[in-house]
Amino acid sequence: MAAEQTKSGSTPQRRTLTVKPTLLGDKVFFGITSFTAYFSIALVGLVLVFLLIRAWPALQHEGINFLIGSTWDDSVQPMVMQIFPMLWGSILLALLGVLLAVPMAIALAYLIEFLAPKPIARVATLLVDLLAALPSVVIGLWGLFVFTPVAEGWSELLHKTLGWLPFFANETGNFSRSPFIAGWIVAVMIVPIITSVTREIFSQMDRDLINAAKALGGGMASTLTRVILPTASGGIVGGTLLGLGRALGETVAIFFVLNLSFDINWFDVSEARGGSIASMILSKLGEATDYEISGLMAAGVVLFVSTLIINFIAGYIVNRAQPWRK
């Protein structure tokens, strides 16, 4: 008997396949899990909704000045609330933190993945994970009593040697509670996240590519700059953005090491001027009037929306840079 196939010629009708659970047990199972998933997402929306409701009076009254104005005055009725100095302070801190953390993170990731022998790499990984687990209030305590005296010295040194640069100018002679110090603290907080993303990208890289570069006579340095970094750049950028998001939201660790003053500190990193949105909220919310609470909630909305956007973009970039995750 040969092939007894009936060639129908026309395109056969596709059948609908079961994609939805049919059994009661499965319906309940997937119902519950979908509920938890949607509830968790709704939580993000709820946070925004509740902050917005509370923030509305202040936002409505101040309008765009809330973001770009620089006055915070509770001696008038209704009080004036404009957060630009704090907003810029947060951005400055985040930029400083990232600037300091990225070299440390890349160096560590490179050391762990390509340079160090296994046991050292393992210890280094452990240390980075441990650093990530340290509560920010403990870092804040350390920052205030142990790190600040040391960093004041660094700051003064920078002022003496590089004081002609506008960044290190200092008129007051006081080097404490400055963005420079808080930037270091932020860097300590975000090094682990940038390191772990970078390390993950490094570890999944095609070793043949690296060997090929070496086979062509490239040294470690040229392999790093011409092969490893370009290939991993997406992941590093994503990891850095994640760090940036963390840095914007960091509260307790910098609360004690950063001065809070309502005048814009564009880039005098060693001067104790400026502040950050998060530490402003923490310091004012306790004894705020109803209307002031509204302004602080609006500040919270700004913080939340900006970190959400940054994290969303970062997540997108990191996922794209890690196709093996899918």
């Binding site: 059948r15 396949l17 049919t22």
Partner: peptide
Amino acid sequence: GLAGSVLLDGQDIYGDGVNPV
């Protein structure tokens, strides 16, 4: 995607009301 049918003892296993389990 699928077209056609699979018959077990003459009954279509993809038929309506047949539970895949």
